[in-house]
């Protein structure tokens, strides 16, 4: 199925999920395309959201991830049905609609809720058939995209920082902790309130969920803070809430950086790689924020990764 035909088919499917009786839409609500990217297309109609997963999504792995979401109410948004359906070769899942974080108002970001949900997720025993969390694989994919993007003056420091990471963070070796249940791709777009608009916050998007190093789930906010982008008070709200909820990725007190360093470096490198690749593709110069992330990669060359629990080895 081509990208041109997927969206209409997915839209028809989500309408059918809301209105099982064929015919014109009785509710009169519009279809909303929430995302349309290579790695997933998401359409909302009324109270239901349909997601067509990446073309290379493995059915058994997605089913295992979906069942985790179905069995962890209060932490993950539960799907409408426990198994994906096939839509002309693409796996499709259905979800209740939840209200997202307002992208125009990051100051209102629910840092405490995000941290508490992660801590609860990390403390949940993982099912034995769950595949690895895909964070390092996504970082490696970003580096592949950078290498394919063509020459750019900022590429060298980013690849140097990547080369300084331990093999597990580059998806070249198994992760040191293969037992903890992780989200794998935490950012502010991965939280919704359900029921909308005032229900409790829940985590969404199980495509990268799996077992692995839980520090990865804290590493984006950690990287934003380290790059000088996230104010210290917001970072501390997130970190402290995670520690108060007995999250296992960092010690309950004291310096969290020995535990966070490798993953925060990896997410910084991933963010820098994607920024350069997009900048080259669009012919736009890097902006101040993107440059701050690349500058952080440059500084990593003079500071070897911190050792924590053998994570860096």
């Amino acid at each position: 199925m081509t990208a041109d035909t997927l969206l209409p088919a997915l839209t028809a499917t989500v309408r059918g999920a809301v209105h099982p009786v064929p015919g014109p839409c009785p509710c009169g609500t519009k279809d909303t395309v929430l995302a349309d990217r290579d790695d997933g297309t998401v359409v909302r109609h009324g109270d239901i959201v349909a997601k067509a997963h990446a073309p290379d999504a493995a059915p058994a792995e997605l089913a295992a991830r979906l069942s985790v979401a179905a069995e962890l109410p209060g932490v993950l948004l539960p799907p409408q049905a426990p198994t994906p359906v096939d839509l002309h070769g693409r796996l499709v899942t259905f979800w209740p609609y939840g209200s997202p974080v307002d992208p125009e108002n990051p100051e209102a970001a629910p840092w405490e809720a995000a941290a508490t949900l992660l801590a609860r997720l990390h403390r949940t025993p993982a099912p034995h058939d769950l595949p690895p969390m895909r964070g390092p694989a996504k970082a490696a994919r970003a580096i592949a995209r950078l290498r394919a993007a063509g020459p750019h003056p900022a590429t060298a420091p980013v690849l140097r920082a990547w080369g300084g990471l331990p093999p597990w963070a580059r998806a070249e070796a198994p992760m040191p902790d293969a037992t903890t249940l992780c989200h794998g791709d935490l950012h502010l777009g991965q939280l919704v309130r359900h029921p909308a608009p005032n229900g409790p916050w829940l985590l969404i998007d199980v495509d990268d969920l799996g077992v692995g190093a839980p520090a990865w789930d804290l590493a984006r906010p950690a990287a934003w803070y380290a790059c000088g982008l996230l104010p210290p008070d917001e970072w501390l709200r997130f970190l402290t809430a995670y520690q108060r909820a007995d999250g296992p990725a960092v010690p309950a007190t004291g310096d969290p950086w020995p535990a966070l360093d490798v993953a925060a470096r990896a997410l910084t490198v991933q963010t820098a790689a994607l920024a350069i690749a997009k900048s080259v593709a669009a012919g736009h110069p890097l902006d101040e924020v993107q440059q701050a992330v690349i500058d952080a990669c440059d500084r990593m060359g003079t500071a070897p990764p911190e050792l924590a629990h053998g994570f860096a080895t």
Partner: peptide, 11 residues
């Protein structure tokens, strides 16, 4: 707050 060695200079 503690920050890594490669963190931005304003820390």
């Amino acid at each position: 707050a503690p920050a890594p060695a490669w963190g931005a200079p304003q820390h």
